[in-house]
């Protein structure tokens, strides 16, 4: 595929003896939103976490095949995992702001990366909060605790925190499933805005959300990739019967 940012080839992943991903070969296009859908246990979150080596922290995980980002094998010997994760922001289902001020949450990454200049940090915080569509709501209370924000605002703060270290990929694991419809719509609009700068992957159980926000959709089932294609095609005329059955709510 032209302009592919991430490519996996024959990716298999085992939790001990149990195989969770089977021979996944997939090319994720750059600066687009790709949704990963499928029933619980289908491997979509496992796949997402294999892209920034988050599975490394689980005992007994073994991987075969390759994952390439910008054509570099991220599982090759000598790859600096911390450096890799700096390039790949991650947002989880439950927002997880640090028990610090709004400002310090966003400044955290740049500070540990060695950005010492106050003006530079302040600019980065403002810019990241603006990109996360949160600046107008918090600009007058940056010193207040992040824990005082609403659920939706906390999630956008976590996105701002990810953006502050200038990643080029954003992984989102059910980023809006704990939010009300308005907060969800704001996150979805934000995802749409961010794709001009970032390659975004989103795991979601909400098929309507996948349809609304993504350009491409990958359907996983029992650890296998059943179908990958343009979201428009997946939701109007999928190629595989299994995909059709899943998106029309006949199983899952």
């Amino acid at each position: 595929m032209k302009n592919s940012k991430i490519s996996t080839e024959h990716l298999n992943l085992f939790y001990g003896k149990k195989q969770a991903l089977f021979d996944i070969s997939l090319e994720i296009p750059e600066k687009k939103v790709t949704a990963l859908i499928g029933p619980s246990g289908c491997g979509k979150s496992t796949f997402l976490r294999s892209l920034n080596r988050m599975n490394d922290i689980i005992n007994g995980v073994r991987i075969t095949g390759s994952v390439r980002i910008d054509n570099e094998d991220i599982y090759a010997r000598g790859v600096d995992v911390v450096h890799l994760r700096r390039r790949i922001g991650m947002v989880f289902q439950k927002s997880n702001p640090f028990p610090k001020s709004i400002f310090d949450n966003v400044a955290y990454g740049p500070r540990i990366n060695g950005t010492g200049n106050r003006k530079e940090i302040a600019d980065l915080v403002e810019q990241s909060l603006k990109q996360a569509a949160l600046w107008d709501e918090v600009k007058d209370r940056l010193k207040e605790s992040a824990l005082g924000l609403s659920g939706g605002q906390q999630q956008r703060l976590c996105i701002a925190r990810s953006l502050a270290v200038s990643p080029d990929i954003l992984l989102m694991d059910e980023p809006a499933s704990a939010l009300d419809p308005i907060a969800t719509a704001k996150i979805e609009e934000l995802i749409y805005e961010l794709k001009s700068r970032y390659t975004i992957l989103i795991v979601t159980h909400n098929l309507q959300q996948a349809a609304r926000v993504s350009d491409h959709t990958a359907f996983f089932y029992l650890g296998e990739l059943v179908e990958f294609g343009k979201t428009r095609g997946i939701f109007t005329n999928p190629e595989h019967e299994q995909t059709e059955n899943y998106v029309t709510g006949k199983f899952g």
Binding site: I182, A185, K186, E188, E189, Y192, R212
Partner: peptide, 8 residues
Amino acid sequence: DHILKRFD
């Protein structure tokens, strides 16, 4: 307007 500008 809708929150989702793409929809608009």
